[in-house]
Amino acid sequence: LAALHAEGPLAGLPVTRSDARVLIFNEWEERKKSEPWLRLDMSDKAIFRRYPHLR
């Protein structure tokens, strides 16, 4: 499970980098069924690119 911001401008976004990794992994797991070539990237760089508020 990932903790998400409940309200405000960040509502629905992950609270920590660990939470972001959970979301990225879950999405990758779903997408790899139809796109088996996808690589999993959970590096800090990938997290910041996707969720800049975690910098």
Rank of each mutant, 00 (worst) to 15 (best):
52 P>A: 03
6 A>C: 12
53 H>V: 01
14 P>T: 01
51 Y>R: 00
30 E>F: 11
31 R>D: 04
41 D>G: 02
51 Y>D: 00
19 D>F: 03
13 L>I: 03
33 K>W: 09
50 R>P: 01
15 V>L: 10
31 R>T: 04
48 F>Y: 14
17 R>I: 15
17 R>M: 15
43 S>H: 03
51 Y>L: 07
54 L>M: 04
32 K>V: 15
39 R>K: 15
25 F>S: 04
4 L>M: 09
55 R>D: 10
54 L>I: 03
11 A>E: 09
5 H>Y: 11
9 P>V: 09
4 L>R: 08
15 V>K: 12
4 L>T: 10
13 L>D: 02
29 E>C: 14
41 D>W: 03
50 R>L: 12
2 A>W: 04
21 R>T: 04
42 M>D: 08
22 V>E: 06
47 I>E: 00
41 D>I: 06
49 R>M: 14
40 L>V: 05
8 G>F: 05
54 L>P: 00
35 E>D: 11
49 R>G: 13
34 S>N: 14
27 E>W: 06
26 N>Y: 12
55 R>H: 08
6 A>E: 12
36 P>Q: 07
5 H>A: 04
49 R>F: 12
38 L>R: 08
26 N>Q: 14
8 G>S: 04
38 L>D: 05
47 I>W: 01
30 E>A: 11
28 W>A: 01
6 A>H: 12
53 H>D: 01
46 A>F: 12
32 K>C: 11
49 R>T: 14
1 L>V: 15
46 A>D: 05
13 L>F: 07
51 Y>S: 00
28 W>P: 00
15 V>P: 02
22 V>Y: 10
3 A>W: 11
32 K>W: 08
21 R>V: 07
51 Y>W: 15
15 V>T: 05
41 D>R: 02
34 S>C: 14
30 E>H: 10
17 R>K: 15
22 V>K: 14
47 I>S: 00
12 G>D: 04
25 F>G: 02
15 V>E: 05
53 H>F: 02
50 R>Y: 06
31 R>S: 06
26 N>F: 12
12 G>L: 04
17 R>Y: 11
49 R>H: 14
9 P>T: 08
22 V>P: 00
20 A>I: 01
44 D>R: 07
9 P>H: 08
30 E>R: 13
16 T>G: 08
28 W>E: 02
46 A>E: 15
15 V>S: 03
54 L>C: 02
9 P>G: 06
1 L>F: 13
39 R>A: 13
37 W>K: 14
5 H>R: 03
18 S>H: 15
25 F>E: 05
6 A>Q: 15
19 D>E: 06
54 L>F: 04
7 E>W: 10
32 K>Q: 09
28 W>T: 01
7 E>K: 10
10 L>F: 13
41 D>C: 07
49 R>S: 15
42 M>Y: 08
32 K>Y: 09
17 R>W: 11
17 R>E: 08
40 L>C: 07
50 R>N: 08
15 V>Y: 04
23 L>V: 10
41 D>K: 03
25 F>M: 10
10 L>C: 10
52 P>L: 02
38 L>W: 10
28 W>H: 06
31 R>K: 11
40 L>H: 01
28 W>N: 01
51 Y>P: 01
40 L>K: 02
28 W>L: 02
6 A>D: 10
7 E>C: 13
12 G>P: 03
52 P>S: 03
9 P>N: 08
20 A>S: 01
47 I>D: 01
41 D>E: 06
12 G>M: 06
52 P>R: 02
22 V>D: 05
15 V>F: 06
44 D>A: 08
10 L>M: 08
33 K>A: 10
24 I>K: 00
36 P>Y: 06
14 P>S: 00
1 L>T: 14
11 A>G: 07
41 D>V: 04
4 L>G: 04
2 A>R: 05
24 I>N: 00
51 Y>H: 07
8 G>T: 03
23 L>E: 03
24 I>H: 01
10 L>Q: 05
22 V>T: 11
48 F>H: 10
2 A>E: 07
13 L>V: 03
9 P>L: 10
39 R>E: 15
5 H>E: 04
40 L>R: 01
16 T>N: 11
20 A>F: 08
44 D>Q: 06
7 E>S: 13
7 E>N: 12
9 P>K: 09
14 P>W: 00
55 R>F: 12
47 I>N: 00
8 G>H: 05
22 V>M: 13
37 W>Q: 12
44 D>G: 09
25 F>D: 01
32 K>R: 14
23 L>C: 07
43 S>W: 02
39 R>P: 14
23 L>H: 03
45 K>P: 09
26 N>C: 15
53 H>K: 00
47 I>Y: 01
1 L>G: 13
25 F>W: 11
2 A>L: 13
30 E>S: 12
28 W>G: 01
29 E>D: 09
51 Y>G: 00
45 K>N: 13
42 M>C: 13
46 A>K: 08
21 R>F: 05
41 D>T: 03
43 S>M: 02
9 P>C: 09
5 H>W: 13
24 I>A: 02
13 L>T: 03
21 R>C: 13
21 R>L: 10
36 P>I: 06
33 K>E: 10
42 M>P: 02
23 L>A: 05
46 A>S: 09
54 L>Y: 00
28 W>S: 01
44 D>P: 08
16 T>C: 10
43 S>D: 05
41 D>Q: 04
12 G>F: 04
34 S>L: 14
25 F>H: 08
22 V>N: 08
45 K>T: 12
6 A>R: 12
40 L>Q: 02
31 R>Q: 08
36 P>L: 04
32 K>D: 03
34 S>M: 12
8 G>I: 04
5 H>T: 04
55 R>T: 10
5 H>G: 04
49 R>W: 11
11 A>M: 12
26 N>V: 11
34 S>A: 12
9 P>D: 09
8 G>N: 04
20 A>Y: 00
4 L>F: 07
36 P>V: 04
10 L>D: 04
18 S>F: 13
17 R>F: 13
12 G>I: 03
33 K>S: 10
30 E>I: 12
2 A>H: 07
13 L>M: 09
52 P>K: 03
44 D>V: 08
55 R>N: 11
20 A>H: 00
21 R>W: 06
30 E>K: 12
53 H>Q: 02
14 P>M: 01
23 L>M: 09
1 L>H: 13
18 S>Q: 15
5 H>I: 09
53 H>N: 03
42 M>A: 06
20 A>P: 00
43 S>C: 07
4 L>D: 04
32 K>M: 08
27 E>M: 07
33 K>T: 10
43 S>N: 03
53 H>P: 00
49 R>L: 15
37 W>P: 04
15 V>I: 14
26 N>K: 13
3 A>S: 13
54 L>Q: 00
10 L>G: 03
19 D>N: 03
48 F>Q: 08
20 A>K: 00
45 K>W: 11
23 L>I: 12
50 R>F: 06
5 H>V: 05
13 L>C: 09
3 A>H: 15
